[in-house]
Design a binder for these strands. Structure first.
Length: 279
DNA sequence: CGGATTTGACCCGCGC
DNA sequence: GCGCGGGTCAAATCCG
């Protein structure tokens, strides 16, 4: 089901109206929500070529709530991220279309922990770089992805990012870039790649959540107001990504609906569902 | 000169 | 066990 090959334009009047209504406010809200939930003023970059973006969520990285005894996270966003992982934050216990991990998986985690401990004795492992292995089982960080139609790969979302890698991706003519947030110990990662199916589409994947306010100071949403709003497009979901449903998206960003952006997501979700049903 | 980017090497997980 | 592909590191380089 990886690629449904669906590609069409959303022509919903509601969507268009919503988009024209107060795109600045909604984007502002959206971007704020990507952060720590702290109020952030976002300088509209005029780079977001499409509004709204199609939002995707990586369900492969969900995790059960029982987050047992995970050692220190790689970065401080963790308590919060644990909540998000199962898309079922405490405030909105309504279940999403994405299920929580099973006990089985929890058991696997346990086994893995044991295996990791055994590896501690391997001297080779203490070599060079290295990631936290040992008891530090791989942290499952919540991911959040969305597509935008833009000629520019790295969209300015108001945060400061440092590029730490670039890799060629198999079956894709465009390289994937890796960025890390430079905000004080934040550690949020961002992956940017251009879709091979539609080269005008940029897929941005956030990993983790910002633990600090957006560093860029206020110039409000002026840029948004001047920004050209184009018809939103729908693109087939990438492999390992699935379109988020309204409910799961809402549980990620509960306050989003209050700002109207959710309407657009709803439309996108409905169209995607219809496409799935027709298959 | 300090911070950001580039890029080759390395590590790790996964599938065969 | 091995090869492949994705992700990360860090030295070199670039740039303001």
């Amino acid at each position: 089901m990886a690629n449904m090959g669906f590609s069409g334009e959303i022509t919903s009047a509601a969507t268009t109206a919503a988009a024209e209504a107060s795109e600045g406010d909604k984007w502002d809200s959206f971007l704020n929500l990507l952060g720590a939930g702290v109020h952030q003023d976002f300088v509209a970059p005029a780079l977001f070529d499409s509004y709204p973006p199609l939002i995707l969520e990586d369900i492969l990285h969900e995790q059960d709530t029982n987050q047992k005894l995970l050692p220190s996270p790689p970065f401080s966003a963790v308590p919060e991220s644990s909540e998000c992982l199962n898309n079922n934050p405490p405030e909105t216990p309504n279940s999403s279309s994405i299920s929580s991990l099973s006990n089985e998986e929890a058991a696997n985690d346990e086994q893995q922990t044991k295996a990791d401990e055994e590896q501690d004795e391997d001297p080779d492992k203490t070599r060079k770089l290295l990631k936290p292995k040992k008891n530090q089982k791989k942290e499952r960080v919540p991911r959040f992805a969305f597509m935008t139609k833009s000629e520019i790969d790295h969209l300015d979302d108001g945060y400061r990012w440092r590029k730490y890698g670039q890799k060629a991706v198999k079956n894709c003519p465009f390289p994937r870039s890796y960025y890390r947030c430079t905000g004080g110990g934040c550690g949020v990662k961002k992956r940017v790649e251009r879709s091979s199916e539609d080269t005008t589409v940029v897929v941005t994947t956030y990993e983790g959540r910002h633990t600090h306010p957006c560093p860029i100071t206020s110039r409000g949403s002026i840029g948004f107001a001047q920004q050209q709003v184009v018809q939103p497009h729908m693109y087939s979901p990438l492999e390992n990504l699935t379109t988020t449903t309204t409910s799961s998206f809402d549980s990620w960003f509960p306050s989003l609906g209050q700002h109207g952006l959710l309407q657009d997501i709803v439309v996108a979700d409905q169209v995607m569902r219809q496409a799935e049903e027709q298959m």
